[in-house]
Design a protein around this nucleic acid. Sequence first.
DNA 1: CTGAAAGCGCTAACAG
DNA 2: CTGTTAGCGCTTTCAG
Lengths: 372, 372
Amino acid sequence: MRSRKTSIRDVAARAGVSTATVSNVLSGRKPVNADLCERVLEAARALGYQRNRAASSLRSGRSSVVAVLVPDLTDTFFAAIVSSIEALGHDQGYDVIVASSRDNRRIEESRLAAMLEWHPAGVIAIPCSNTVPESLVQQHQDMPVVLVDRVIASEAPTDTVTLDNADSGEIAARHLVERGHRNILLAATRMDIAAISERVGGASELIVRQTGCAPTVLELTSSLARGTEILSSWLERHPLPDAVLALNNVTTLSALSALAGQRIAIPDRVSLMAFDDYPWMSARRTGLSAVDQPVEAMARAAWDRLLLRMQRRQTTAPRSIVFNARLVVRDSVKELEGKKPVRGSTGVPLAVKSSQPEKTGQPRADDDISVH
Amino acid sequence: MRSRKTSIRDVAARAGVSTATVSNVLSGRKPVNADLCERVLEAARALGYQRNRAASSLRSGRSSVVAVLVPDLTDTFFAAIVSSIEALGHDQGYDVIVASSRDNRRIEESRLAAMLEWHPAGVIAIPCSNTVPESLVQQHQDMPVVLVDRVIASEAPTDTVTLDNADSGEIAARHLVERGHRNILLAATRMDIAAISERVGGASELIVRQTGCAPTVLELTSSLARGTEILSSWLERHPLPDAVLALNNVTTLSALSALAGQRIAIPDRVSLMAFDDYPWMSARRTGLSAVDQPVEAMARAAWDRLLLRMQRRQTTAPRSIVFNARLVVRDSVKELEGKKPVRGSTGVPLAVKSSQPEKTGQPRADDDISVH
DNA sequence: CTGAAAGCGCTAACAG
DNA sequence: CTGTTAGCGCTTTCAG
């Protein structure tokens, strides 16, 4: 059975060299004579040698592990982030250890604690709440940490990668308002998540400013099933709004389900603005108009930032990188006749900030700022 | 900055005991006097001590890492598997390291090699091809390995967890045929993946037997975008079939996209049978009829099996656990008038094997067999 | 039940 | 460029 694994010593013996030489050949950290190199490689191959990373990282004090924490591995957005990080990481020789907090602070701390025992070279985390996990604030001096998505960028002591949430809410709302919608339902998850409340804020403000009507905000939780229930029962008790604006991909799905459950046609009876843009959104006859987040670029930005810190020991001030969402117009938002915006004397949008399309995939220059 | 991490020695010193005692308290492997226990815990807390897993696993020879390999982390099915394993694993104190092969044999081997250097306690892998990765066949004697989904159960030298693929194809096909469909398009990914060709086989056989018409098989690859292209251009050059039968969640999406792209109504102009059952499939007006795989149960079975082997050193014969798919009837398959099946003198289905519904989530008793 | 000491497999320092 | 040696932080004998 499990005979003692062949170690570097066995290889050294077979190749007739010292263990140090073997190590140097295998890790390539110090130059070695081509001859010996060959012999070592040969011996290693013959013995089926496999280096022991635990030993190696223990001795060297370096780690090639990156820890990734997300609230839910089945959420399309988080899965996309993990997938990108995994690819990027492996390309640089890092192994990725993942954990899901299942949207629970307690689990989050416990998962983090477990992962931190590996003394990872860095961690990329999407916290489940606004408060930066205790263990990360404690350790971020000693270990690069990048916080993504659900963070209050200005309050985090670490690098952050986020969306300009308020702006994204505004973009979505503007599209709805410009097409004559006034009575708008905001499908949020939980208002205590900054990303969400900021989107709600951005959308609400614009809606109120332009139409004078305050939107209704519904908290659907982060559970798809629960969200569908909540929205369904709300729909039963209330007159149909002009439009539903979903504030992330889960609420988008909840909205879709609830609406489908009551056979409410989109966009004939209600318009729907989706958040995020995944294949399943556009794979049906009436594709969903959406506010799209540059997920991949965000993942890359997080990775680049982490890599930088992992490579250079120097501690520069934390930086927050902010991305912009992009409007994708498809068929789920109807043009409402005779219901033009009331306020705003001209047809010109009141807010100009993002009327000019930004290149997706590029952090916004003016927001790519250093705080602290 | 990165001051030397506090080690077990610091804790020992502060508590006035030996390092051995600290270790015993912290790991709980040997009983320790309650007094000392308290003191050690106190000291550890005060110093913010964090165990070093690399050192611990190096010395003890035990590992608390489980490696998980999948072909694509953004695929809903694989993401669901990873998510379940992660939860199950963490609950038992295992950390999960993930890698995606991106459906490429070379990457697969390299990812595996990297992960194996951690000497994981076990690995759960969904290979990207039929051939069991070399490194796994080499090491599976020394380290528990469970292969899932894309495996030829009878040929694998390890435990396997699979779907009864032929049967699942049959279930889907039967539903279509019973509703009068004859001209059926099979949307496969690649026929060199056993799981897929078995589904195709099961479906084809039934279709031919019942209707006399051979279905068309289209290989859409495992890329959603590519698949959509391929199917779209096929649709442009061929008369519309009665139905499209998708053989996994990716081809389901490709089919949906291609059909939507050409504004072909489902089920009015073509029926569609989906494979797998995820929220986005039922979130629209015409919900998709589907053949559903008990993903969660499969993940649990894989985990249970792995755990068993990780705990008990004994090597019993590899076991293949086979699950059954379940038919979910919704609205995407139309009842075709005047097009009843031709063969089969009575209305009784020819194949009885799975006419009796099985409990989902339970491995089929008669197939839960040992091979080798 | 507790402590002293050895050493897991590897790499870093240094000496040659 | 190569070998010797020490020791990373921990767990595990084995004495006491």
